[in-house]
Nucleic acid binder design. Structure first.
Lengths: 266, 266
DNA sequence: TAGATTGTTAATCGATTAACAATC
DNA sequence: TAGATTGTTAATCGATTAACAATC
């Protein structure tokens, strides 16, 4: 029995949950009934001990000698992630990125519902995007309060991000996903996660400039393994995994082989 | 003297470097000459000990009693990040997100140059985006080799991501920024960073569903501090910080107060 | 039963943080 | 000099990992 309350879930564990969920969605769609920690680990790009440790924080869902029931485990993870409840979301900043996110498939899958788009620019306000009318930022606080908005997505330029964060916080929003290249400060009750495109590029550049600083990944072995598996799958015909598919809607065909091929029960 | 070689730089440190760089860019543009670890820390949303420890991995750049020379430190960090060299970049998958990234300002600032756009869809191939003609994916490997592409950005649906990663790897690309909601496996010489929009949303949802699991941030104190500072700045007039500005080009005005107000030398 | 795999323990690894002597 | 702040040390914290008894 894990110490159910008070449960202090390590943040790295929380970050891996959506990955496990996505893998399980793929397996479930394939009709795979059970999965071992080793198989789940390989598909998620981590190691088996981590999978078992992560899952043990929430309960004992597996069967020794057999593994985990895919659909049951999926349900448990979705319950933990709160996928059942619908969370109203707003996007602030309707530049190219804001437009792209508004039109993306990323909401529907995970229990999110887009309820508002906001911008400050007169030529953008009033435009219709993804079935929503873009409103002026001066309405932001009121809409957040009225609709009980759970998550605010900031896709403005850096200079506007703090101001928007302040309005979201005042409007009662308690979670912010910040795509603007700026550090924002918020009251303690507000959770912030920062997605920083150009910083990610710079991290990659750093490792290219300093090959000696590259951390040795597990994935070295993982790659050899999955490479063999994938080659094997292609050889056999078409046991391809089409993962998750809470995808951005880019028009590239999804006809290639998946990353995490998996021996399918016969 | 830090142990210059072999330098094993902790990954969390590498991830913070672009943040420090951005803050320093802002300070430099403001004409601020020196900055203490405490000031830099607050603007970057971390603590002072972390800043000093991070910087100490690269050298001794500060002056006891005074702090760090902004322009000198900025230069050192940019040198470490390899911002001086131009790195050719390609984007694969010209859906909404690929379009948005292609048009973003995220490349120019950090020493990246967009040299190719690729898609598999006949109706997208041939289109012009950001001054580049979209090419068919069958040309990807050859272009990567010819142009010596350093970073490949994947903005395809999940099902195509592994295939694209394979082509990039075969084409000699050694760094991949993956926006597709899929785990990809690559040979050990290839670095991968994964930006996962819907997973980030799900992490926020998890913490809303489990308020008791929220890690207590430093930022609680940081917020009170910066809040006071920002109020102070507004009071004084307009000592606003316009950070970095390696921004996405959303049309929201950058006329608000910045996140990291900073006492400016007179 | 024999084989496989879990959940948990304990060891290891690595990052964060506080504290402070050294230094300007 | 007195005050401020660095760079580094050592303690703390927390996550990862290997190993294995329990279990199907």
């Amino acid at each position: 029995m894990p110490e159910r309350f008070g449960r202090r879930i390590p943040e790295p564990t929380v970050v891996r949950l959506p990955v496990y969920q996505r893998v399980l969605l793929g397996l479930s769609a394939e009709g795979v009934a059970t999965v071992s920690s080793a198989e789940l680990a390989e598909a998620a790009g981590v190691n088996a001990a981590k999978v078992r440790k992560d899952l043990s924080h929430f309960g004992t869902y597996g069967t020794p000698g057999t593994g985990y029931d895919v659909d049951y485990l999926l349900g448990q993870i979705q319950r933990e992630l709160g996928t059942d409840q619908e969370r109203p979301v707003v996007i602030v900043g309707l530049g190219h990125l804001g437009h792209a996110l508004a039109r993306s498939q990323g909401f529907a899958g995970g229990g999110f519902r887009l309820v508002g788009l906001f911008d400050i620019d007169a030529s953008t306000v009033g435009e219709e995007v993804a079935g929503q009318l873009v409103r002026h930022i001066c309405e932001l606080e009121e809409v957040c309060r009225r609709e009980g908005v759970a998550v605010g997505i900031i896709t403005t330029p850096a200079g506007a991000a703090q101001d928007v964060a302040d309005h979201l916080a005042t409007g009662g929003v308690s979670a912010i996903l910040n795509f603007a290249p700026a550090v924002i400060s918020v009251p303690p009750r507000v959770q912030v996660r920062h997605v920083d495109f150009s910083a990610e590029l710079q991290v990659l550049a750093f490792y290219q400039a300093h090959p000696e600083a590259v951390a040795t990944r597990d994935s070295a072995a993982a790659w050899r393994g999955s490479h063999a598996l994938r080659a094997h799958a292609v050889h056999q015909g078409s046991h391809d995994v089409h993962q998750g598919s809470v995808a951005f809607d880019a028009p590239v065909g999804a006809d290639s082989h998946g990353g995490a091929s998996h021996p399918v029960a016969p």
